[in-house]
């Protein structure tokens, strides 16, 4: 059936063995590299850490146990703390929501200029992409700290920082979604003489809007965490409350705030997964 002069079984076997050997060598090298990284990194960590690893490990449960003990001792009063910090929590969530909204709007504008299938000018596309890269690369905290220093303590610096980061992060995802959109509706509209804006409005946006909303919801979840952390460095909300009670060592109140945070994050997770499932259709 097969003529022998194409590739003999022996040659195939030889090639296969060579390939398997090569792959084995590669895996071996990468495993060695990972082990080396791990051991040397942990050695550096052990040398430069304030406390040693073993002592820390034995003390790991001390702090949570202390906190829980205090919360348990305060009894019924503990529930009042949960409600006491509810307004702070709402303020943090609102901060995240507002900045996600604004960030998404900026991201949408940026992404329209960063998609090859909408903008033919290569320079504009590259410029918008690099802009988004830079916006995305700064951790929120770095921007927020600088603005906090320049504007005094309020929620606004945190909002600005999250908007900047969100615009970059969502912009990239948005522009990828636009570039993956089906080109036929765009061409169809173009053939009837639709303007650039009409093509975007009626051919691109309807295709990508479920994906955009899904990405934005994911981002909202991340931003709630981020705005808590920014509160911790002085931007108000539940983060600031947490940092205050930690300094005063009110164990019961710390537990109350942590409880609120964990509940919020878990419920947001479920809520956004539910909404995304409905939007995109695959309820995973």
């Amino acid at each position: 059936m097969y003529s022998d002069n194409i590739l003999g079984f022996e040659t195939i076997e030889k090639n296969l063995k060579a390939m398997a050997f090569k792959r084995l060598i590669y895996s071996f090298i990468s495993i060695l590299a990972i082990l080396f990284l791990l051991s040397s990194g942990l050695t550096i960590a052990e040398e430069n850490n304030a406390g040693s690893f073993q002592r820390g490990l034995s003390k790991f449960f001390d702090y949570p146990v202390d906190l829980f003990k205090e919360a348990f001792e305060s009894g019924w009063r503990w529930y009042a703390y949960v409600f006491k910090y509810l307004p702070d929590l709402i303020s943090t969530i609102n901060m995240a929501f507002f900045s996600t909204l604004f960030g998404a709007i900026f991201a949408l504008l940026l992404s329209l200029f960063a998609s090859k299938n909408l903008i033919k000018n290569q320079y504009i596309v590259t410029f918008s992409r690099r802009t988004m890269d830079i916006l995305r690369s700064f951790p929120e905290l770095v921007i927020a700290m600088i603005f906090l220093y320049l504007m005094g303590k309020s929620e606004l610096p945190a909002v600005i920082a999250i908007v900047i980061h969100t615009a970059g992060a969502l912009g990239k995802l948005f522009s990828e979604a636009i570039e993956n959109a089906d080109n036929k509706p765009i061409e169809g509209l173009q053939s009837c003489g639709a303007s650039w804006w009409q093509r975007v409005r009626f051919a691109v946006i309807p295709q990508v809007i479920p994906l955009f909303i899904s990405y934005t919801l994911l981002r909202l979840e991340i931003n709630v965490r981020a705005s808590t952390i920014l509160g911790f460095v002085g931007a108000g909300g539940i983060g600031e409350a947490l940092s205050a009670v930690i300094q005063f060592r009110y164990g019961d109140e710390i537990i109350a705030i942590m409880f609120l945070l964990v509940i919020t994050i878990i419920s947001l997770d479920y809520f956004s997964r539910f909404l995304r499932g409905r939007l995109i259709g695959d309820n995973k």
């Binding site: 960590a45 304030a50 003390k59």
Partner: peptide, 12 residues
């Protein structure tokens, strides 16, 4: 925050 109490400031 929890690890900060256990290990102190540092890489761990």
């Amino acid at each position: 925050l929890i690890f900060l109490r256990a290990f102190g400031p540092g890489l761990f």
